[in-house]
Design a protein around this nucleic acid. Structure first.
Lengths: 121, 121
DNA sequence: TCATTAATTAAGCAATTACCTAATTATCTT
DNA sequence: AAGATAATTAGGTAATTGCTTAATTAATGA
C-alpha cells in the first residue's frame, strides 16, 4: 500500500509544479486566456474585455496562470501586460505524456500527422 | 466582447471533450492512476490498494477517467479490469499545445530532446 | 443456497472553488 | 493636488469537490 513514486508532495513544496500546471489548465476560461495570448501579448483589461466576467475574476485566473509559470506579467506604467511562456506548458504536458505513454511513440507521430493534415487541405 | 472561438459550450454537449480530459488530469490521484495503468492493466481493487483512500473514492476517480475517455473498463467475472487508452490523452494534449504554441515547433523538438536524453546516460 | 469477495451506488459533510461587489493601490493627466 | 483609469486585494456566498461510511449489486465457491 502507498507507493510514493507519483506523490507530488515529494516534489519539495507541498504543491508540485505539474499539479499547478494541470490545475491551471483544468479551467475553460484559463485555456481561453492562453489561446488569446498565443496570438499576442495583452493587458489585463484587454483580456477581461473578452469575457463575460468581472475584472477581478479574470485577474484571479491570470494569477493562477502566472503561478503555474504559463504566463508572464510585466507592469508597464499603469497597465499590466501579460504574455505566454510556452516552454513550461510544452515541457509539462510532454513530460507527462512521455511518462504515461510508451516512450517514443506518442507525441512525435501525432505531431507529424497533424502537421501533414494541415499542409494538405 | 465575448468571443466564442474557445467557448467549449459550442462543442455540442454542454461539457466538451477537452474540458473532461483536462479536468480528469487536474487531480494528482488520477494522474497517478494513469501512470500505474501505463505499466499494465489492473483491477479496481489492485488500483485502490495503491492509495490511502477508500475504495469508493478510487472508484469515483476511475469513473471520471473513463468518462474522459482516458481509460477503458472491462468486466471480467467479479473483477473489473481497467486499462489505458493512450490515444485520447495524446490527441487532446497535443491538439491543445498545437493550438496555443506556434505550430510545428514545440512538441516534436521537445519529444526528440527527451528521447535523446534518455538514450545517453 | 448461503456466505464471501469485488465493485459500485447512495447519502452526507468539510473544504475548496469561482464568482460577485466594494475597497484599495498605483499611475497618468490636467 | 485632484480626478480618472487600470488593476489588484478583500470579503462574502452559492455551488462544487473530494472524501467518508453504509447500503447495494453481482459473481464465486462451499
Amino acid at each position: 500500500m502507498e507507493d510514493e513514486t507519483f506523490d507530488e508532495t515529494s516534489e519539495g513544496s507541498s504543491v508540485g509544479a505539474a499539479q499547478r500546471v494541470f490545475h491551471a489548465l483544468s479551467s475553460a476560461p484559463r485555456r481561453k486566456i492562453l489561446a488569446y495570448l498565443s496570438a499576442s501579448g495583452l493587458t489585463a483589461g484587454e483580456i477581461a474585455d473578452r469575457f463575460n466576467m468581472s475584472k477581478p475574476a479574470v485577474s484571479q485566473h491570470l494569477s493562477i496562470l502566472e503561478t503555474a509559470g504559463l504566463i508572464r506579467r510585466e507592469k508597464q506604467g499603469q497597465f499590466v501586460h501579460y504574455s505566454l511562456i510556452e516552454n513550461n506548458l510544452v515541457n509539462t504536458l510532454n513530460g507527462f505524456v512521455q511518462e504515461v505513454c510508451p516512450v517514443g511513440r506518442p507525441i512525435k507521430k501525432e505531431s507529424q500527422a497533424r502537421a501533414r493534415a494541415k499542409e494538405l487541405p
